[in-house]
């Protein structure tokens, strides 16, 4: 039952909840469970092949999952997962 922290821009899809408890033994399973619980969130965090979108970063505790086992990073009951949207842009 990893806990996922929902970023401000996506809370409208989780009934304004800042955290959601999820099932699953890996980051991927937890994120898929989140998307199943809140369907409106799905397209903002997963692409059409159900992979985590490239503009979204996932942290387990303070660690980027790209420095761990990526989507297959193991999670436990007390794991805190953060969804971090990319913030970028530019003039032209």
């Amino acid at each position: 039952m990893a806990k996922i922290i929902i970023p401000s821009p996506l809370r409208k899809f989780t009934d304004n909840l800042t955290t959601v408890a999820t099932s699953g033994n890996t980051v991927q399973e937890a994120i898929l469970d989140l998307a199943t619980q809140y369907q409106g969130l799905r397209k903002h965090i997963l692409d059409t092949e159900q992979n985590i979108r490239s503009f979204i970063r996932i942290y387990v505790g303070e660690e980027d999952i790209n420095a761990l086992d990526k989507e297959q990073t193991a999670v436990a009951e007390d794991t805190v997962i953060s969804i971090v949207p990319a913030i970028a842009g530019g003039a032209y």
Binding site: P7, S8, P9, L10, R11, K12, H44, F55, P85, A86, I87, A88, G89, G90, A91, Y92
Partner: peptide
């Protein structure tokens, strides 16, 4: 407080959102 968004500057350009701004924009912000 609520984190309501992001600001940035467009040096020597108008304050019009660009395609790069749009590409990674999040809802709500």
């Amino acid at each position: 407080l609520e984190l309501l968004g992001v600001y940035h500057s467009h040096p020597s350009h108008p304050a019009i959102a660009s395609e790069h701004d749009l590409k990674v924009a999040m809802p709500f912000f």
